[in-house]
Amino acid sequence: MNAPSPQSSLPAAAACAQPLVRFENVHKTYDERNWVVNDLNLEIAQGEFLSLLGPSGSGKTTTLMMLAGFDSPDRGQIFMDGHDISRLPAYKRDMGVVFQSYALFPHMSVEQNVAFPLNLRKVSAAERKQRVGEALELAQLSGFASRRPAQLSGGQQQRVALARALVYRPRMLLMDEPLGALDKALRERMQLELKSIHRQLGITFVYVTHDQDEAMTMSDRVAVFHNGKIEQIDRPEAIYNRPSSRFVANFLGETNLLDGVITGVGSTSASILLKDDNSIRDVPCHLATLAVGDPASLAIRPENVRLANPGEPALQARLVDSIFHGAHCNLRLTLPSGTPLTMKLNPGSLNRPLPVPGDTVALALPREHSLLLP
């Protein structure tokens, strides 16, 4: 099974239409030696919520800054509606931007902060009042118009920055880690509110984050960045269930990677002999180019590992530790080869005693939930 191309993973309505934005062979360097963004090709559909996900230094923020117009490509082009905007100034791009720092004016009221972009655009007083009121209502800040930023909580300040970015009705909203300074509970609530606002407005959102849960929660598509390139781009559930590489499998959620050697190859699946001499046949694989004798890894999420039934082919593992998480237990195990393995177990679903550290446990790795990676 070949990894999906960026075009094939666009929302169905957008796949046949011209993309709103297109990056074409874009490169960016700051030291003339290393590419921060390396030959980037990316299409962004009208109205989608696209998250750029990756570790620090992977190129995601530089990509956003080039899209916003705060930086320019050293090679390649960026198109919007088919027009080259690679050198177009930021103020001519019709894009709202929200940063992690919010960048609010402390001496201005909430209403004045939100109205600031309209003042720059010389919008009439009557229209300005109407738009500011609409933006404050959208951001659930109608009762805070006269307050100063210092009188607001972190979540409220974030909403002010959002209202200010939306008040002049941009075609796109770009966000760079806007929830990074918030505590976990507030961050999760704001994720749902951002998703709701996106649904109401229908404009294109491009969102930079290093938080995988954030990207999975809000996005129509996720682009996973690594070393200046997009390693994989697709719907969140497709990336989670069918990662295209070891990096994506490790970065997006927790994954068990069991090394071995390919012993047989089909058109969309292959067989692998693991280090522990366990052979698993007909496992789905991304690359049809895998050959017998090639090293490979079997990837399986902890929630898909289960206890084997009597008489079923199984891997033997020793339980090292069990960590209670309420709805499930995390079992940390070790295979005879020393390879670590994690599984999530629902104690309520067991019709047998819960294993304890030191026990030998028989494990089943369902083929339909496994994937072979090079």
Rank of each mutant, 00 (worst) to 15 (best):
R22G: 09
R22P: 06
R22D: 11
E24K: 12
E24H: 11
N25A: 14
V26C: 10
V26H: 05
H27S: 11
T29E: 10
T29Y: 10
T29V: 09
Y30E: 06
D31W: 10
E32P: 06
N34I: 08
W35C: 03
V37R: 01
D39F: 06
L40Y: 05
N41T: 04
E43S: 15
Q46K: 13
Q46L: 10
G47I: 03
G47T: 05
F49S: 03
L50E: 01
L53E: 01
G54K: 00
P55R: 00
S56I: 01
G57H: 01
G59K: 02
T61G: 07
T61C: 04
T61H: 03
T62V: 09
T62N: 05
L64P: 00
M65H: 14
M65G: 04
M65Q: 14
G69M: 02
S72G: 08
D74L: 14
D74H: 13
R75G: 09
G76P: 08
G76V: 06
G76E: 06
F79P: 03
M80E: 15
D81I: 06
H83D: 12
S86M: 07
R87D: 12
Y91G: 05
R93T: 09
M95A: 15
V97L: 15
A103S: 12
L104W: 04
H107Q: 13
H107L: 11
M108Y: 07
S109M: 01
E111I: 00
E111F: 01
V114C: 05
V114P: 00
A115I: 02
P117S: 07
P117E: 03
L118A: 04
L120V: 13
K122M: 10
R128A: 10
K129T: 13
K129Q: 14
Q130D: 12
V132Q: 00
E134Y: 03
A135D: 03
L136Q: 02
L136M: 11
L138K: 03
A139H: 00
A139N: 00
A139I: 00
L141C: 02
S142F: 03
S142P: 04
S142A: 15
S146H: 12
R148I: 01
P149L: 08
P149A: 09
P149H: 07
Q151M: 14
Q151P: 12
